[in-house]
């Protein structure tokens, strides 16, 4: 029972945990920024690209959304060396994988956001003489982004949780750091509990933030 637990391992583990956590953050932030940019382009391609481009974007998004992230991680981890001829570290492989994978999810959010802007706004942009890109950049995307901010952040919380899946290819994230320290000091149980606590605190505070944002963002119309 609980009396068997020895949490004195935790202070010792902190430097390792911190390093793992930093990688988890790096992966989250890279995939979020890259994913939102790529996802927005995919959404635009799907909504206003030609038939070829919009079909490509749709296929890209639908495919990635219907297979497990774990499989995608494995695909890239095994395929990149086959293509480039030399192995790529698990950490870098994950950065590429997550950016490309998350783009599919952010793309669906941005698509909904763009579609939530009334057609009249686009017309008003065109009517003052703006081009397609000016209308998107000045009128539609700022509003879409703002309306979707809570949803984009919620997706980022999911993304942060999903970074733990790099476990499958041995990249050293928060979970892996906790597991390694647990093994080295023979206290695996305590370290799993500790890592769960860290994930919970981060995700829970972020989701509280999202709730407050949602109340504030009800856009002035």
């Amino acid at each position: 029972m609980l009396s068997n637990f020895d949490f004195s391992v935790i202070p010792v583990s902190l430097p390792f945990i911190w390093e793992g956590l930093l990688y988890s953050f790096k992966l989250t932030i890279t995939a979020m920024c890259g994913g939102i940019i790529l996802g927005t382009l995919l959404a635009l391609a799907r909504l206003s690209g030609g038939p070829v481009l919009s079909r490509f974007a749709a296929a890209y998004v639908d495919t990635l959304r219907s297979i497990p992230l774990l499989m995608v991680i494995l695909w890239f981890f095994f395929l990149i060396p086959l293509v480039t001829g030399k192995p790529m570290g698990a950490e870098n492989s994950a950065l590429i994988t997550f950016t490309l994978f998350e783009a599919a999810f952010y793309s669906e959010i941005m698509r909904a956001g763009i579609q939530s802007i009334p057609k009249g706004q686009v017309n008003a942009g065109y009517a003052v003489g703006m081009t397609y890109w000016q209308t998107m950049g000045n009128v539609v995307l700022p509003q879409a982004f703002r309306n979707m901010l809570p949803v984009l952040l919620t997706q980022t919380i999911i993304l942060f949780q999903d970074t733990s899946l790099v476990y499958a290819i041995g990249a050293k994230d928060l979970l892996k750091a906790a597991e390694n320290t647990g093994k080295n000091y023979n206290r695996p149980v305590e370290m799993y509990v500790f890592s769960a606590l860290i994930y919970f605190i981060i995700c829970f505070s972020l989701s509280m933030l999202v709730k407050r944002l949602q109340k504030r963002i009800a856009i002035i119309r």
Partner: peptide, 21 residues
Amino acid sequence: NLPKLRARVGMVFQHFELFPH
């Protein structure tokens, strides 16, 4: 060049379509 043409033609819409942001 449509943007150029539209820039010279003012338009007012039924639902105003001011940019809310």
